[in-house]
Nucleic acid binder design. Structure first.
Lengths: 220, 220
DNA sequence: AGGGTCAGTATTGTATACAAGACCCTGGCT
DNA sequence: AGCCAGGGTCTTGTATACAATACTGACCCT
């Protein structure tokens, strides 16, 4: 794991995700390199990769900026997620193994606990578990390519953006939809699974683009 | 153009596309650099980018290999294309401008001429025009993100792979489907457009995975 | 005074030199 | 004879030095 490029990639990505490098902020190679403790070479390679993944933007001879999403981008992203994750759920309905289903069940339960709990980092935990649930469904679909593509679409900063926009009722709906998706997978019903996942995500799309409510947590 | 990295990227990609670097063949940085006339640095960056696009595979400390597609990969790719390009056609039905439609009409006509002609490079031309038609529909959908994603999915080497697998009748069907898609777009009928595009691509999926016939040309 | 141009500076782009790790072949041992 | 060990070589990974390009500010010209 020692690889300096790997380290640079992880650190820079992390910096973007948790807001240390805000949207549209410029990234100077020298600074990054100094901060991480490697030379510019691995930093450049890491930036190249982040660029290919859509997290940063290149301008020749003018450096790299963190990508800033427009309202339209967000809509586009949720549309594509609905399409692709819906498809993933459809596949998963035919392929999910018993252990995979058990894992998803545990995640759904943990998420409910997290929502109903009162921990101060409640929102963080909910978002994290939610993310793992979606990853789990995707994994059950057993399509490497789909995983790769969704990696390009659903950028984690977006989750931050979605953060805190759920009203309590919408959050409950989200939990209920997770249970529904799970049930559809258990029954091996592809259409139901796809449809439930689609609704789940299109519901989230409409939450994005509103002012933050402060009342809930990100839940796709 | 001037940029050495850009040059390296283009040349290596070209080499993969036209078979100079066959599937699973190893790429040594030094060789590539010497062949292109630049140093290893831009070559590495180009390889990094190609890796992110899914054209080559990295193995730490062991270099880069051109990706080799399995049968299952091909099925997966066509499924995803059907999904994504179907969606693209749906969007395009509501957004295509008159000039865009005219452009697509010209392409459809040219493709028919190419199919019916007897030029020795007929297959090449058909594949090329076909590709531009699909790009055109996609462009009409006006979703940058969709374009980017499909760029990751539909790799051109795959077109080579599909090459020469069409029987004449299937090729005719393909032309007819292009006309149908175009008509659906003209009428602004999203469901029809999506469905026609889906059929078109799923038809191609079944052609892939057969032995080459030698009788036709690639036509998605 | 305003605008343009030219030099200085900062930052990215490229080359090269050096380090580290992985493959391969030979030699010795069991 | 087969197998393990060790060194040599080849290739990738990283650092640094150098080149080229774009920003900044000041000065000159109109």
């Amino acid at each position: 794991m020692g690889s300096a490029t790997e380290l640079a990639y992880t650190r820079i990505r992390q910096g973007i995700l948790d807001g240390a490098h805000g949207p549209a902020s410029r990234l100077r190679e020298e600074d990054l390199a100094a901060g991480i403790g490697v030379s510019r070479t691995p930093v450049r390679e890491a930036l190249r990769r982040l660029g290919a993944e859509g997290l940063v933007e290149f301008t020749p001879n003018r450096g790299v900026r963190v990508v800033a999403w427009s309202e339209r981008d967000l809509q586009e992203i949720f549309e594509l997620r609905a399409l692709l994750e819906g498809y993933g759920a459809r596949l998963a309905a035919g392929r999910a193994t018993a252990p995979a289903l058990r894992g998803l069940t545990v995640l759904a339960e943990r998420m409910e606990e997290a929502v109903r709990g009162h921990a101060p980092d409640r929102l963080e935990r909910v978002a994290e578990i939610n993310n793992r649930f979606h990853q789990g469904v995707l994994a059950a679909a057993a399509s490497d390519r789909l995983v790769a593509i969704l990696g390009h679409v659903v950028q984690v900063p977006l989750v931050r953006h979605t953060f805190r926009r759920y009203a309590p009722r919408e959050l409950e709906r989200s939990l209920s939809q997770h249970r529904e998706i799970l049930e559809a997978l258990r029954q091996g019903d592809p259409e139901w699974a796809a449809s439930a996942m689609r609704s789940h995500i299109l519901g989230a799309r409409n939450v994005v683009g509103r002012a933050p409510t402060g009342g809930g947590a990100a839940a796709t």
